[in-house]
């Protein structure tokens, strides 16, 4: 019997139903997001198509233009572009570490799955903590990293950055937020 009561009740107050309030801002006139979207689309098209004659590249330009016109403002907002190349490099540096962590996590879950006394080993619980990450993208990367690594699944991220995490056993949830938060924070330069 555990000496402390596991926190398994769900805090419904933490679940905000509404979009965070954004005061109406004048629409940004910067063409940078559209240019960026067009270039990314064109590169993706070349990889997908694999045909480099004039006709297919012209089709690719038309298609990229259609995508840019319909959803060019989705990929990123204009004010984020300044720190983008550095952030991408740091993100690529983060990926190998993440892959290694995912591999370790999978080995852990595999051990649980094939263990004959699995029911005694697992001890599911809900963990709550407050992150210090401020950037929405960083929170997103952090949440998905949590879902992919040791026995933990992000249940909810509130607007204020309060994470609710479901952990499969005691050892899995102990490291949070810990090292991963520092590494994600380093990507966006916090």
């Amino acid at each position: 019997m555990a000496n402390t009561k596991p926190d398994n009740t769900v805090d419904y107050q933490a679940f905000s139903p509404f979009k965070p309030f954004e005061p109406p801002t004048p629409p940004e006139k910067s063409p940078l997001p559209y240019v960026f979207t067009f270039c990314v689309c064109m590169i993706t098209w070349l990889v997908l198509s694999g045909k480099f004659d004039f006709f297919h590249i012209a089709l690719g330009i038309v298609s990229s233009a259609i995508v840019t016109a319909t959803s060019g403002d989705m990929l990123l907002k204009a004010r984020r572009i300044a720190g983008l190349p550095g952030a991408w490099l740091r993100f690529i540096a983060y990926v190998p570490w993440l892959l290694f962590e995912i591999f370790r996590a999978n080995m852990h879950v595999m051990r649980l799955v094939f263990h004959p006394r699995m029911m005694d080993l697992i001890d599911p619980r809900m963990i709550r903590f407050q992150t210090r990450l401020d950037n929405e993208m960083a929170r997103f990367i952090f949440a998905n990293s949590i879902t992919l690594t040791p026995g933990t699944i992000t249940v909810y991220v509130s607007i204020l950055g309060k994470y609710t995490v479901h952990a499969i056993d005691r050892a899995s949830g102990q490291g949070l937020p810990g090292e991963m938060e520092d590494r994600v924070g380093a990507i966006v330069g916090e």
């Binding site: 595999m110 799955v113 992919l148 479901h166």
Partner: peptide, 28 residues
């Protein structure tokens, strides 16, 4: 890993814990 995921979602006791093998092992 796929085999582990398939056995995991059969063996684990409830829906929350079944998501662990389904989400992670299948991705891996």
């Amino acid at each position: 890993f796929f085999l582990g995921g398939a056995i995991g979602i059969l063996r684990f006791p409830d829906f929350y814990s079944r998501l662990h093998p389904a989400g992670k092992l299948d991705t891996m």
